[in-house]
């Protein structure tokens, strides 16, 4: 029998109280569902990280805005090409320690490992583009109404079949 992961083991007491309060009514009655229609070996796979990863050539996530208004988080997203390495990105998220991903991006966004799975034939291909947003967003309206649809359109334009979302 599988051992259940303890959701509260690695969160602060304060964060634990917030999670307990927000989730007290439990999960929704209905979950969205898209079946996997073909073997992984034929699928295009993309990653989405909430670590606030942005290319040095791109606009950083707005950390100053959050410092000015701690109830606000930048709801935008960034495209991360498949061959990106830690040398080409910054991590713009005020709630995580960026040092590990800046040593090796694969410990937050395993782009090289995904490419290796493609080369070994375990997935069809790694998507040409992956995505990052910044996960501290207390008011999700813009994220849901603008950012998510734009990301979905980008994913569909590259015929992505499978998305692995990685909150941090």
């Amino acid at each position: 029998m599988e051992k259940e992961v303890d959701s509260y083991r690695y969160v602060s007491r304060l964060t634990g109280r917030i999670i307990r309060s927000w989730t007290k009514d439990g999960p929704p009655a209905d979950f969205p569902w898209t079946p996997l229609e073909k073997p992984l070996a034929e699928c295009t796979v993309a990653l989405i990280s909430s670590a606030g990863i942005a290319l040095h050539t791109d606009q950083p996530f707005d950390q100053e805005g959050e410092r000015q208004n701690p109830w606000w988080g930048d709801p935008s997203y960034r495209r991360i090409p498949q061959d990106t390495t830690e040398k080409e990105v910054g991590i713009y998220h005020l709630h995580v320690n960026p040092r590990y991903a800046l040593q090796d991006l694969n410990c937050m966004m395993p782009l090289q490992r995904l490419q290796e799975l493609a080369e070994q034939g375990e997935i069809g291909r790694a998507a040409p583009t992956h995505y990052s947003m910044m996960g501290y967003i207390l008011r999700p309206e813009t994220l849901l109404q603008e950012t998510a649809p734009a990301m979905i359109a980008d994913l569909q334009s590259e015929d992505v079949d499978v998305v692995v979302l990685v909150p941090v």
Binding site: V5, Y10, L155, P167
Partner: peptide, 10 residues
């Protein structure tokens, strides 16, 4: 698209 979340807070 089929999705999965790798989560430390299920």
């Amino acid at each position: 698209m089929s999705t999965i979340v790798l989560t430390p807070i299920p």
